[in-house]
Simulated assay, not measured.
Amino acid sequence: MCADPVVTGALDAAGAGVSEYFAALKREEFFDWHTGVGNWEIDHYLTAF
């Protein structure tokens, strides 16, 4: 996303730095989701070992 000038241009049209802010927000959201353990994982994997 950050390498695409069309996307960054469209986001930065709302204000300078919006594209970088949005990208950082989405990175943080991804890592939060990826490092979390949900009920599905507990139900399926905890009893498997």
Rank of each mutant, 00 (worst) to 15 (best):
A23I: 09
A16Y: 03
G36S: 12
W40M: 02
D43Q: 15
T35Q: 10
E29V: 13
F49A: 08
E28H: 06
A14E: 15
P5F: 11
A3K: 15
E20L: 14
V6D: 14
T35P: 01
D43V: 14
W40Y: 02
T8N: 08
A3I: 13
E20F: 12
G9R: 01
L25H: 04
G15F: 10
A13F: 10
A10N: 11
G9V: 03
V18S: 07
V18P: 05
V7Y: 05
V37T: 14
T35C: 07
C2N: 14
D12C: 01
T35M: 07
A24V: 00
E41S: 06
F22Q: 04
W33N: 06
Y45H: 14
A24N: 07
A23D: 02
F30V: 11
M1T: 12
G9E: 14
P5C: 08
V6A: 10
V18F: 01
H44C: 05
W40V: 06
D4H: 05
V37A: 11
W33H: 10
S19P: 05
G9C: 09
V37L: 14
H44I: 03
P5M: 10
F31K: 07
G38P: 06
W33T: 12
D4Y: 09
M1L: 11
W33D: 00
D4E: 05
D43S: 14
E41Y: 10
L11N: 06
G38R: 13
M1C: 10
G38C: 09
Y45T: 05
A24C: 00
E28Q: 03
A16S: 01
D32R: 10
E29M: 03
R27G: 00
G15W: 08
F31V: 04
Y21M: 02
G9N: 09
A16F: 03
S19E: 04
L11T: 00
D4V: 14
H44L: 03
A48T: 09
T47A: 02
T8C: 11
R27S: 09
L46V: 12
G17I: 05
A16E: 04
W33K: 13
G36H: 12
A13T: 04
R27K: 05
A10W: 13
V18W: 03
A24Q: 01
E28P: 06
T47N: 00
V6T: 15
K26I: 14
W40N: 02
Y21P: 03
F22Y: 00
D43I: 13
Y21I: 09
K26P: 07
N39G: 01
H34G: 00
I42G: 08
A14F: 15
H34C: 05
S19C: 04
A16K: 00
A23T: 03
G38W: 11
A24D: 10
K26M: 15
G9A: 10
V18D: 04
W33C: 04
H44V: 04
D32S: 08
V6Q: 11
G9D: 13
F30W: 12
E41R: 11
T47C: 02
E28S: 01
T35I: 06
H44R: 02
I42R: 09
E28I: 05
L11Y: 10
Y21G: 01
V18Q: 08
G36Q: 13
A23K: 08
E29F: 11
V6W: 11
G38K: 12
E28V: 01
G17R: 03
A3L: 14
W33Y: 13
P5D: 15
